[in-house]
């Protein structure tokens, strides 16, 4: 491996450490928010937003999605579309059970 490649990896390591710190901080933030006893609907939304940001950091940097080939991104886009349908299904059954929002 050439010197420039090694330097390239070293740069990546700095990013990994930054992402790790961000993930740890966001974990503490998630727990902190839960102690605020916010209204359920708002608390769920906030917790899922923080979790999605954390998941994005893991997928983007630790799993290198940010610089990944298009074919992988297409596979995941297709997966996301099916996942979306999967999450729409329960909403269809909700009719008659009272409103989901506001809780």
């Amino acid at each position: 491996m050439s010197e420039s490649d090694v330097e390239h990896v070293r740069q990546h390591i700095k990013v990994y450490v930054t992402v790790f710190v961000a993930l740890a901080v966001l974990t503490v933030v998630t727990v902190g928010i839960s102690y605020l006893h916010l209204p359920t609907g708002f608390a769920i939304t906030l917790a899922m937003v923080v979790a999605t940001v954390k998941a994005g950091l893991v997928a983007g940097y630790f799993m290198h999605l940010i610089s990944e080939e298009k074919v992988i991104l297409w596979v995941l886009l297709l997966c996301a579309a099916f996942l979306f349908v999967l999450f729409i299904l329960p909403l269809g059954t909700q009719i008659g059970n009272g409103p989901l929002w506001p809780l």
Binding site: T40, A43, I44, A47, M48, K54, A55
Partner: peptide, 11 residues
């Protein structure tokens, strides 16, 4: 786990 933890423990 990042999704499981808040879903089960915090909400």
């Amino acid at each position: 786990w990042i999704f499981l933890f808040p879903t089960l423990y915090l909400l």
